[in-house]
């Protein structure tokens, strides 16, 4: 069964195609990646997949539920971090996680341990971008999702990269599906079994990682 099915997904903003005719499928229980340089349209594509943006044309389904028609239903069992992680600045990391965890009628302790978050009592406004990213991944893991959609989860300081990579592999081993975006081909090769390379919103190569054409993407 496909966890994500995008069919001819297109988004036009001010007459410019920011995502142009992208079609791909992500099988359940795998890690897939979207590779592209800054401004290629990776975050916009994730916004379309999560229903934040309405597509100009095309469709996207998550576990057979149409995101465009019913985003709330489609996002059930889906954990997302799209764009730069955004939290309530005046609240601590723990309070932010408690707030979002309450939506799922659960607590934040499990994800705090999982991500090894050592700054629970620090206000979000004082966190570094790496810490915010970890908090974003932790928030996405709330409610034990079976599909994780993460925007640049490895844009971290080196000491945390391996930890997050291991966490994503563990998710796959549990049978969950992961979709990540990255601008580093090596990360995609290491983690994913399927990839889509996009440039200026257009898919330039897609398929199994070993067959992917990475020409033109910075190593």
């Amino acid at each position: 069964m496909s966890a994500i099915t995008c069919t001819s997904l297109t988004k036009t903003l001010d007459k410019n195609s920011v995502v142009d005719d992208i079609t791909f499928e992500v099988e359940e229980g795998t890690i897939a990646g979207i590779l592209g340089e800054d401004g290629a349209g990776k975050t916009t594509l994730l916004k379309l997949i999560t229903g934040l943006l309405k597509p100009t044309s095309g469709t996207c389904t998550l576990f057979d539920a149409d995101v465009t028609r019913n985003p709330a239903k489609a996002l059930k069992g889906v954990g997302c971090m799209v764009g730069e992680p955004a939290f309530y600045q005046d609240l601590t990391a723990q309070k932010n996680l408690e707030l979002f965890a309450a939506l799922f009628q659960t607590g934040p302790d499990e994800v705090i341990d999982l991500l090894d978050i050592t700054f629970p009592s620090t206000k979000v406004r004082y966190l570094s971008s790496t810490m915010k990213k970890l908090l974003g991944i932790a928030a996405a893991l709330l409610g034990e999702p079976r599909l994780l959609i993460l925007d640049e989860p490895l844009a971290l300081t080196p000491s945390f990269r391996d930890h997050v990579k291991n966490l994503l592999k563990e998710q796959k081993e549990k049978g969950n599906t992961v979709l990540v975006t990255t601008c580093i081909p090596a990360d995609l090769k290491e983690l994913a079994s399927y990839g889509v390379v996009i440039r200026e919103g257009k898919p330039v190569s897609q398929g199994a990682i070993k067959n992917l054409d990475l020409k033109g993407v910075n190593p």
Partner: peptide
């Protein structure tokens, strides 16, 4: 503008809710 609404809208919650 701070993006927290985006964080909320990526949860399985209807916008009218």
């Amino acid at each position: 503008s701070s993006g927290t609404l985006r964080t909320l809208f990526t949860r399985p919650v209807k916008r009218d809710n």
